[in-house]
Design a protein around this nucleic acid. Structure first.
Length: 480
RNA sequence: GGCGAUAUCGUCUAGGGGUUAGGACAUGUGGUUCUCAACCACAGAACCGGGGUUCGAAUCCCCGUAUCGCUACCA
């Protein structure tokens, strides 16, 4: 039977890199085995959830290429896929648990319990709810329910040991004595996470629950719920968390944490996916750079490692550079088109008559960019005649009194050389330098500054060829 | 405090009773070179600590320690 897995974010914030990786592992697993990847929005915390965040999460998932088979927007046989639209299911499940004596109504006031807990903890004691409401007389309960007195529903945790076989950690055991009778329905009639997640995972027929390590301690509660509901317990795979460089939980003070920020900074989704996949999962072998399909072909839950992993921005940059280098020119062009339009350098003939030329320009620039956003600005010398001069470079390479005479001679060569290609230009320049008794570098650097405005650029002769004879000569006449 | 998970170069990791403990990022040095990248070569850099089992432990066991997580009418 093909697996059914899900990603179930809470729309209380943007999609962060940790959530993205959890989503990615689920997606890879589903795609690897021809299974179903379900997206479910866990928005039962009305206080902190927002529809803007729902949209932002969809956008980031889409950007990463993590398409879902069932969920919001695409629908599916187990909808709706927003938990707030499924409340009656959770309430019915809770009523059934009360009826079967697996749960009970608790009329205690939250503030009172909170105060008791605080007092006990101040005295250094552990505090668990003492089940006082299990001792309520049945007719008393019936009367208070009839009177619509607000109350929670608690799960009656049985004595014993609860264990499960985690696909990444192996067998994990918990003594139920350490588990409190947790609330499954709040006094505002909304379900808590433990109930809603289990009810949904049962109904959506989830076969493997792949989620963050932070849920390991929650799992026995949920296993208890599955058993009480008479449902099959799925397999669990708890993936390690992503930490900041200080090994503290990744947060804003570590820099960008949301996927959307990386998108706007010019990272490729391919690079992000590659980087995230290898953070805590190893495909075996020494290969590091993978396409999406290669990741799918190799993914296994067993390859996930056990310890938390530090998010290393340097390595992300390296992946980004690797993927940019591998991207075909027309693909790069498509992605930086908005940047070029913003700079006023876009024209449609870049896609037609000048397609080969721009591909050659991009071939020069691609290995020099570790970020998509760096590419367009580096195309100035090719796409604009409005150069920006670097003062230090001008001073260093154009200010010597001997330079103008050398450049005059070089211009004469440029005007007359029969073929304006990189190899011919290089030969001509070196010959001229030798004839004038100077180092080629003097002419090379001066020409670079005159033609690009900058001290750094791709190889000069390739630049000259692609800028073209007329524009090169025009710029040679204008050294500031 | 209780419970749980984890522990190999700075970072991501491979390996796993006898290995020169491997790779990648980062770092350093050198090469190439017209600059900057890219590229190539080389270098430094690790098995958390203590016991035990064993001829032999980084690997197996126990005890510590550290880190992270859970311990809510958050998810």
């Amino acid at each position: 039977m093909p697996p059914r897995v899900r990603f179930a974010p809470s729309p209380t914030g943007y999609l962060h890199v940790g959530g993205a990786r959890t989503a990615l592992f689920n997606w890879l697993y589903a795609r690897r085995h021809g299974g179903t990847f379900i997206l479910r929005i866990e928005d039962t915390d009305m206080e902190r959830s927002s529809t803007d965040m729902v949209t932002a999460i969809f956008d980031s998932m889409t950007w990463l290429g993590l398409d879902w088979d069932e969920g919001p927007r695409v629908g599916g046989p187990h909808g709706p896929y927003f938990q707030t639209e499924r409340l009656d299911k959770y309430r019915a499940a809770a009523d059934a648990l009360v009826a079967s004596a697996h749960a009970y109504r608790c009329f205690c006031k939250p503030d009172d319990l909170k105060a008791e807990r605080a007092a006990a903890e101040a005295a250094g004691q552990t505090w668990n709810y003492d089940r006082r409401c299990t001792r309520l007389a049945p007719d008393d309960i019936a009367r208070r329910v009839a009177a619509r007195e607000s109350h929670a529903v608690r799960f009656l945790v049985p004595a014993g040991i609860t264990a499960f076989d985690d696909l990444v950690h192996g067998r994990i055991e918990f003594d139920n004595a350490n588990i409190e009778d947790f609330v499954i329905i709040r006094s505002d009639t909304y379900p808590t996470y433990h109930l809603s997640v289990v009810v949904d995972d049962v109904e959506m027929q989830i076969t493997e629950v792949v989620r963050g390590d932070d849920h390991i301690s929650n799992t026995p509660k949920q296993v208890l719920l599955y058993v009480a509901m008479g449902a099959a317990v799925p397999k669990f795979a708890h993936v390690p968390l992503i930490m900041g460089p200080d090994k503290k939980r990744l947060s804003k003070r570590h820099g960008a944490t949301s996927v959307g920020e990386y998108e706007t900074q010019g990272y490729l989704p391919e690079a992000m996916v590659n980087f995230l996949a290898l953070l805590g999962w190893n495909p075996g072998g020494d290969q590091e750079v993978f396409s999406r399909q290669e990741l799918i072909d190799r993914f296994t839950l067993e390859g996930i490692s056990g310890g938390n992993a530090v998010f290393n921005p340097d390595k992300l940059d390296w992946f980004n550079q690797q993927h940019i280098m591998r991207l075909p020119a027309d693909d790069v062009l498509r992605r930086i088109r908005p940047d070029l339009e913003a700079l006023g350098w876009w024209s449609d003939d870049l896609l037609s008559t000048r397609a080969d030329w721009i591909a050659r320009v991009l071939a020069l620039i691609k290995p020099r960019a570790k970020n998509l956003s760096e590419i367009a600005p580096q195309m100035r010398a090719f796409l604009s005649d409005n150069l920006v001069f670097d003062d230090a470079a001008v001073k260093k390479h154009l200010s010597d009194p001997s330079v103008p005479a050398h450049l005059q001679a070089w211009i004469a060569v440029l005007e007359t050389t029969p073929s304006f290609d990189a190899a011919s230009l290089e030969a001509a320049l070196r010959a001229l330098a030798e004839a004038r008794g100077i180092k080629p570098g003097v002419l090379i650097h001066a020409t670079r500054v005159a033609v690009t405005g900058q001290g750094n650029s791709p190889g000069l002769f390739e630049v000259l060829e692609l800028v073209g004879r007329d524009r090169v000569i025009a710029r040679m006449h204008l050294p500031a």
